[in-house]
């Protein structure tokens, strides 16, 4: 007997043994599904903040209450006491925890919802659960709704604060790509990628420092799916979606400012953690451990955070100064360059 015929008969025979489901399957599934929804709301908000464009570092978790019980569009509620601290090179803390810098007034504005502030400019992405995305100014002006259909993964601001990039998928036929979202209008430009050529596991996209390309970690499946290894970075033209180049780097940068000003070096590591970070030479693939996830201010100065304070570092990882930014309610931090 031929294999295919025998396999058909074998599986037919097996499936014939499977009796009807036990009572209560729908109820049990719905109960688990509701727990997944609640967890996803928290995780989506948290992941987006972690992927903040400059670099987002975990000081404390987001407010679970806000994430689990979203309400309509976020509005600033009051102006807290935190004041703007000048960092090297004129950089600023664009956002920390639930506070976002209004560059027009130099005041920090308290947010009621999880938000992702742009590193430059005045726009924020309000993440009000997985099915509600809104772009507004820091004080709630000029709101536009972003259609979340098909959007997946994390969102990352462009270095100029004028666009966001996020992942997109389609189920049938299966497709993966990235969406560039206009920060002013909410308009989405979708670019599908050749998933056979550019196979990603965590299909999260971020930017290069010049904002011309988006970056995707390519999966290394040699250790199995669960290992989530990265074999290299593939870059795409942010405007056309065309692949441009690949780099011998085995982790994803946290954002565009993880690249040095000339683009030769980049700090990469596992998202959401403060350990296991590396500094790569993009031209050779040579790398060495770096003590913190960090952003490059200049070719000689980087910024990172530790215990609620801002650190300045040299490219060899030496801490040269500690700056207290006096955040009254520590959370995730987003650094931003001067306007």
């Amino acid at each position: 007997m031929r294999f295919e015929q025998l396999l058909q008969e074998t599986i037919d025979e097996m499936t014939g043994e499977m009796t009807a489901p036990r009572a209560g399957l729908a109820a049990r599934s719905m109960a688990r599904g509701r727990r997944i929804r609640r967890a996803r709301r928290v995780a989506t908000a948290g992941a987006a903040i972690l992927a903040a464009v400059a670099v987002a570092l975990p000081w404390t978790l987001l407010s679970q209450k806000d994430a689990a019980a979203p309400s309509p569009a976020a509005q600033p509620t009051r102006t807290p006491a935190m004041t703007r601290t000048e960092l090297p090179g004129g950089w600023v803390v664009a956002g920390v925890g639930d506070q976002v810098l209004d560059r027009a007034t130099n005041e920090y504005v308290l947010m009621r919802k999880p938000v992702l502030p742009a590193p430059v400019g005045n726009r924020i992405l309000v993440i009000d659960g997985p099915e509600s995305l809104q772009l507004t100014s820091v004080r709630g002006a000029d709101p536009v709704t972003v259609d979340p259909a098909g959007l997946v993964g994390t969102f990352n601001w462009s270095p100029a604060g004028d666009r966001l990039v996020g992942g997109i998928t389609q189920k049938e036929p299966f497709k993966v790509g990235f969406a560039v979202i206009d920060a002013r209008t909410g308009a989405i430009s979708k670019h599908w990628i050749d998933h056979d050529r550019h196979d990603c596991s965590r299909c999260d996209f971020t930017w290069t420092r010049d904002g011309q390309e988006v970056v995707l970690p390519i999966a290394d499946r040699s250790g199995g799916e669960a290992e989530e290894r990265v074999s290299e970075l593939q870059l795409f033209n942010a405007g056309t979606g065309e692949p441009t180049r690949s780099l011998p780097i085995t982790a994803l940068p946290a954002g565009p400012f993880a690249w040095s000003p000339g683009g030769r070096y980049v700090v990469v590591g596992p998202p959401g953690t403060s350990e296991g970070w590396q500094l790569y030479d993009t031209t050779t693939g040579q790398h060495r451990p770096f003590p913190y996830p960090a952003v490059w201010v200049t070719a000689d100065v980087l910024l990172a955070t530790k215990n609620g304070k801002v650190l300045t570092l040299t490219p060899d990882g030496t801490v040269t100064a500690t700056i207290d930014v006096a955040a009254p309610n520590p959370g995730m931090i987003t650094f931003g360059p001067p306007r």
Partner: peptide, 12 residues
Amino acid sequence: VQTALAKAFSRW
């Protein structure tokens, strides 16, 4: 199946 159904319900 229950795992798959739960995930499906979460985004039904």
